[in-house]
Amino acid sequence: MITHAKPNSQQVISSSAIHHVPSYDTVTAPKETPIAIRYVEPDDIHYLHELLTHSKTVYWTSELPYATVAQIDQRFIQPAEGQYTLVATSDQNIVGMLGFSVNPHPRVHHVARISPVVVHANHQGKGIGSALVKAAIDLTEQWLNVHRLELLVVCQG
């Protein structure tokens, strides 16, 4: 059941927040692996740090490559008002994350900006980023009264 408060680890953002995406195994055919989307929790800090400081992640961001655990904690685990972090888990492992912030100014409080969206290098191409974005859209439209969601995309060229 969804409430207006942040859900605990047993709850997900919405019924559409559980997505089945293929899991690739070199020996067998692809199988469905459920991806659960939830709010970030304090125990996730070391997984987020590993994900956000991975060389394949840092390459595509404007962030410095040597963020400390404390910096990650302050930005994503203990965020300012209006900032949210969702994580995607598969088999209880964090395989992706999405952060977004709702604009605090009254005239543009209906606008939110997504940044960052990160999927672990070993799990890319499996629909995890799409599942995170869908969950963010659901959360912003249904619960936060956001009517405009902005996202900057950097593509390999």
Rank of each mutant, 00 (worst) to 15 (best):
L64F: 07
A17T: 05
G157I: 13
K134T: 10
I13K: 06
V117R: 06
V118M: 06
D44S: 05
P7A: 06
V69D: 04
P116I: 10
Q156N: 11
E50C: 14
I114T: 08
G157R: 12
H147S: 12
L132A: 08
G82T: 12
G99F: 12
A136M: 05
P30R: 07
I35G: 02
A5C: 06
L86H: 06
I72F: 01
S9I: 08
N145A: 15
S14L: 11
I18H: 04
D44Y: 00
Y66F: 10
I94H: 02
D44C: 04
V117A: 06
E150A: 00
Q142E: 13
S14R: 05
A88D: 02
N103Q: 03
K126V: 03
V87F: 10
A29N: 09
V102K: 13
L151H: 04
T68C: 06
V154Q: 15
I114G: 05
P30I: 12
L86D: 04
Q74E: 15
T68P: 02
D43Y: 01
I137F: 13
I2C: 11
A5R: 08
R107W: 05
P7H: 10
V154Y: 14
V102C: 13
A67E: 11
Q156G: 10
T26L: 11
E41R: 15
A135T: 07
S101Y: 06
G127Y: 08
V154N: 11
Y24K: 12
T53F: 11
V21R: 10
R107P: 01
D43S: 12
Q92K: 12
H20L: 10
I72E: 05
L152K: 10
G127Q: 02
H110Q: 02
V58N: 11
Q10L: 11
Q10T: 11
K126E: 09
N145K: 14
G96K: 05
A36I: 02
